[in-house]
Design a binder for these strands. Sequence first.
DNA 1: CGAACGCTTGACATTTGTCAAACGGCGTGG
DNA 2: CCACGCCGTTTGACAAATGTCAAGCGTTCG
Lengths: 217, 217
Amino acid sequence: MGLDNHEFEQIEGLIAARKRVKRQQHLYHAGDPFEAIYAIRIGFFKTDILTEDGRDQVTGFQMAGEILGLDGISIDRHVCNAVALEDSDVCMIPFDRLEDLSRKVEPLQRQFNKFMSREIVREQSIMMLLGSMRAEERLAAFLLNLSQRMQSRGYSASEFNLRMTREEIGSYLGLKLETVSRAFSKFQDEGLLTVHQKHIQILDPDALRTLVGRAHV
Amino acid sequence: MGLDNHEFEQIEGLIAARKRVKRQQHLYHAGDPFEAIYAIRIGFFKTDILTEDGRDQVTGFQMAGEILGLDGISIDRHVCNAVALEDSDVCMIPFDRLEDLSRKVEPLQRQFNKFMSREIVREQSIMMLLGSMRAEERLAAFLLNLSQRMQSRGYSASEFNLRMTREEIGSYLGLKLETVSRAFSKFQDEGLLTVHQKHIQILDPDALRTLVGRAHV
DNA sequence: CGAACGCTTGACATTTGTCAAACGGCGTGG
DNA sequence: CCACGCCGTTTGACAAATGTCAAGCGTTCG
């Protein structure tokens, strides 16, 4: 990334603080003062928002290598809750120090801006999913996305364990848990995948891709 | 904002380039190389994404004082189309110069980071809307949001003209234009507002707020 | 002045949600 | 170690919400 040794050491220092979060524990709560963003070293998280009127929605799932907390910058408070779905391990990156350092180290600044923008784009694709796909298309898109992220981290793209419940998947996809369950069963009946509880094996990824891509034709 | 004169002049210089965009013209297209972000001086825009398979979705509406183009940073190309819904006037802000300057001027860096984060939060609230609200609740939320933004720009909060069609509203809200139209008619029947084509007069904002807040109780 | 476009409304189809029942795996405590 | 109970899941029957298709109307703009 075009860093000299000194710059590299500074960034190393930045990410030194580590933190363990056990399954079902919160990394932060909505409303907490925003002080740091977090890079996931090991584990799996969900972020969700719970409104006063009882509306509750999962806004994302994050796995090792991904960043948590970028939404907090806007108002100096965390906007959502971050909950570990399995025992996890994160690097805490104090935000004021990150801002300072990114004024000095241009590649860091660029990288950070790209991270923020990527988050905006990611959310746009979810808006697309929620706004224009039907239940099975949503689930297919969700599975393909998960599969691709697993693969890019060196895991199998075709076989993995879900860390979240049907209800959490449904909340994320704007569906009820029964609808998610039915879609899984339908995919299995059609031979696109096998499901045993949380264990998923994708048998026909192309069929899933067709579902997502060819919708509404 | 704690700027000295020299800093202020530099920022002035940054936003000197102006550009007019006529109604229905594109400010940029998806796929265009990303070079600048845009601050809207006068006018009204929509952003949308059109996928190969014909899926089409409005991802946002932007009015004077708001920023366009933050999604392009991620991959150095614009991800969506930006189209003027009325004759408009924007400030072009070359992004590499903005990055340079924000390394020197801390308040600018902070402000820019907040803008990015605010965009992330804005999109989260749309995910919330698309994922957990019903048609009338979505339209109510949309109108209240528009109303509030009009007001914060010095216009009437209760009476304004929509710049977009029912179809564009529907696309944004994940609904068909007929559903949007029916929801407008229902609101009018119930005395919450009056509609004449694009002209909206909100009569009972509290009732709209109740719709949004109390849903699913 | 007319044609195109956007909007409204109706009748009906489809999708998804709701409610209910039952199953199965997993963990806990006897 | 086994039994029980809980939680998450699956499935069915039915209800509600939204989409689809079609017709007709009003505006607006060329």
